[in-house]
Design a protein around this nucleic acid. Structure first.
Length: 322
DNA sequence: AATCTGTGCAACCGCCTACAA
DNA sequence: GTTGTAGGCGGTTGCACAGAT
């Protein structure tokens, strides 16, 4: 049968640890080690504490070389970078920061770092909003001067969050090809790359290719049951976003979605759909740590190559590589 | 001076996985 | 193969303190 019960929960002390308890636990572990059995440890040293509580106290507070507070700028960057790449895997993040505990990093993130980043992002958004406003007027002016060929979108496309972090397209077109099963291609030119979206009405799907300086051509395919009016492709994308699964193996924190302009990656029915990568071991994650921009670019590129990315992320990827 | 509100952080809770019996 | 606990982890709670009203 199974092991002996963990502890008598009715007879264990809870709440803050006293200095005497700390001293007892620290002294014993330094002399004898944990013995590989946390549950038996408090009884051995006469502490009326649950073994789990002892373990937590040792790991988060009493362990030698623990650092508290005073996170450096470099540590901030590492935490942010890893959070973007792997989410709230605090123990993995802590493993990259000697002397830091997962609990400490978690608290630091929730109470300070998140707010710090949001403040930074709001400032950037304000600047970008002013830019977008000016560009919108410019595009509108230019499109009015243009003699548009059949199929070219003559309206400002729907970008779910263009007021935030979206890349600004410099040109876009919608082309209907009657020779290819009435496929409709939408081509969006960004300053340094091009996103081509081809709608295949037969299979209710989109083929999206992102080309960046001819170096990273890649294709993703998004199946959808939605319908998309050829004259309104971009509005269609806005709708599809709600049907797409979140690519990251964890739910991206609301604030971070906001930070990176990925709010539209909401998941249908409020579920936390993830891809098959969820249970993947992260292995050596050092490449994800630094420098952030390069690692995010590579991670995103890998996902695109694996056809495991949403349209929004493709655009985000395009933006990041500019 | 008293009360309210926000913040930081230690500790707990509940869940999952590995593994001993 | 099954059962049930230990260990580990992320999310949440609750308390102490500081600053604002």
């Amino acid at each position: 049968m199974g092991r002996a019960p963990c502890c008598d929960k009715a007879n264990v002390k809870r709440g803050p640890w006293s200095p005497a308890e700390d001293a007892k636990l620290k002294s014993y572990i330094q002399d004898h080690g944990t013995g590989g059995n946390w549950i038996a440890l408090p009884q051995k040293i006469g502490l009326k504490r649950c073994g789990k509580s002892c373990r937590l106290r040792w790991l988060n507070y009493l362990r030698p070389n623990i650092k508290h507070g005073g996170f450096s700028e470099e540590e901030d960057n590492i935490i942010c970078s890893l959070y973007v790449n792997i989410g709230s895997r605090w123990s993995i993040i802590a493993a990259q920061l000697p002397g830091r505990t997962d609990n400490d990093i978690k608290n630091y993130w929730n109470t300070k770092l998140k707010k710090k980043l949001l403040g930074k992002q709001r400032k950037e958004q304000q600047v970008q909003a002013r830019r977008v406003c000016g560009l919108k007027q410019e595009i509108k002016r230019e499109s009015e001067d243009f003699l548009l060929p059949v199929g070219v979108i003559s309206r400002t496309p729907y970008w779910p969050h263009e007021q935030n972090s979206w890349p600004i397209p410099v040109a876009y077109a919608c082309i209907q090809d009657s020779d290819l099963n009435n496929q409709t291609s939408s081509i969006i030119h960004f300053p340094n790359n091009t996103v081509t979206a081809t709608m295949n009405s037969q299979y209710s799907s989109f083929d999206i290719s992102v080309t960046q300086d001819q170096l990273y051509p890649s294709t993703v395919n998004m199946i959808t049951t939605d319908t998309c009016h050829t004259s309104n492709v971009f509005q269609g994308f806005g709708n599809f976003s709600s049907d797409l699964a979140c690519v990251n193996p964890q739910q991206i924190d609301e604030s971070m979605r906001d930070f990176y302009g990925l709010e539209s990656m909401e998941i249908a029915n409020g579920s936390t759909n993830t891809t098959s990568t969820e249970s993947t071991s992260w292995g050596d994650i050092s490449s994800l740590v630094y420098p952030p921009l390069v690692s995010e670019y590579e991670a995103c590129h890998q996902r695109i190559m694996a056809q495991d990315v949403t349209f929004e992320e493709s655009s985000y990827f395009a933006m990041q590589t500019q």
